[in-house]
Design a protein around this nucleic acid. Structure first.
Length: 348
DNA sequence: TCTGGGGTCCTCCACCGT
DNA sequence: TCTGACGGTGGAGGACCC
């Protein structure tokens, strides 16, 4: 399995049309007071700027940085260029987000040489660079592709990965985030080898038996998930963080109605509908709350989705009167294609 | 330092019917 | 008739990812 990961993808796409900025610290981030960094160029990363960091803090760390607004339409176009090239070489690919993909190389006569050609062709055709990891499964491939960015090309066996990352922190492994790393540290586990070799009893004081097993398998780089062709979307949502917290229920209702309209418009265009309508509310203290209702049948009708969402919001606000809201969102889940009869009925 | 937007998946719990 | 086990479903929260 190969994992192909584009280097600083959004920034690199921006630099294609702004070659004057090559070599400078560049940050892609929103403009509002609560914006976060989407991507930073390697020059900006040297100042400590990284993804998901508040943009205000990034500017403080690197006042000279050039900040560009994200342009996702352009990133989607660039992503399609790259993935088209990949598909010309490999049949079985699993795209993850815009900038990475797993490739099933089994059956290829010369997988390493093949991947070198893919990377070279991507660069020649798009000007974009990528890093590649190759291993016996998706987990080894993913960690390998991260190991020598940018322009990395790392091939590892499972045992090779265990040896190479033995002393690395557990959070290097995808699926082990900050919270899990913290719990591991609380029982003295601070490395991948430490996790792999720990007596299960040690872990069971902080994790359930199933989680213990799963974490230790990850630390041994055991992973058997296949490279799956496509993942289908099961929910879609629209949400907004406000520049300033909003208190007024009528303002919130109005915003929710707008978000519902956008969401339903997009769903209808894609001829998709869903059965569960939900709202998401983040309060000023950053606590996040969700409320949802499952309907008898799927819908993408603005009046219905908006109506249910409005009702969920009214109920929540009644339970939490006078609380300032920093984010409001609406979601439709349990998505399925619109039945063909509905299209027929419309045509008739 | 003060935390986006769009997602998936998991866990826990309540409820319901068998 | 009552009770408990069990599975399915839905709701809420949270961890995690790009």
């Amino acid at each position: 399995v190969a994992h192909l990961d584009m280097d600083a993808f959004y920034v690199s796409v921006e630099l294609r049309r702004r070659p004057d900025l090559v070599g400078l610290p560049v940050i892609v981030a929103g403009s509002g007071p609560r914006a976060v960094v989407t991507t930073a160029s390697y020059e900006a990363r040297r100042f400590g700027v990284g993804s998901a960091m508040p943009a205000a803090r990034a500017r403080r760390l690197c006042p000279a940085a050039i900040v560009l607004a994200p342009d996702f339409d352009e990133y989607r176009r660039a992503s399609a260029e790259v993935m088209d090239i990949v598909r010309r070489h490999v049949v079985q690919i699993e795209q993850v987000g815009l900038d990475e993909a797993y490739l099933d190389l089994s059956g290829l006569p010369a997988p390493k040489a093949g991947m070198r050609r893919v990377v070279a062709e991507i660069h020649a055709a798009t000007g974009l660079r990528a890093s590649v990891g190759i291993g016996p499964n998706k987990l080894v491939a993913k960690v390998a592709s991260d190991a020598e960015k940018p322009s990395g090309f790392v091939v590892l066996t499972r045992e090779g990965a265990r040896a190479r990352f033995a002393e690395a922190p557990p959070s290097l492994i995808p699926g082990i985030g900050a919270k899990t790393a913290e719990r591991l540290a609380s029982v003295g586990i601070r490395s991948i080898a430490g996790l792999a070799d720990a007596p299960p009893e040690t872990l069971r004081s902080v994790f359930a038996a199933g989680t213990t097993q799963a974490l230790q398998a990850l630390a041994r780089f055991e992973h058997d998930a296949p490279v799956s062709q496509e993942r289908k979307v099961i929910s879609e949502s629209r949400e907004r963080t406000f520049d300033e917290d909003v208190l007024s229920p009528s303002d919130l209702a109005e915003i929710l109605e707008r978000l519902s309209g956008q969401l339903c418009g997009d769903l209808a265009q894609k001829r998709r509908q869903g059965r569960t309508v939900g709202i998401k509310i983040r309060l000023a203290d950053f606590s996040t709350h969700t409320r949802a209702r499952t309907l008898v049948s799927a819908t993408n009708a603005e009046a219905q989705v908006g109506g249910v969402a409005a009702e969920l919001l009214r109920t929540f606000l009644a339970e939490h009167p006078g609380r300032a809201v920093r984010l409001l969102g609406v979601r439709v889940a349990g998505i399925e294609p619109e039945p063909a009869e509905a299209q027929l009925a419309l045509e008739i």
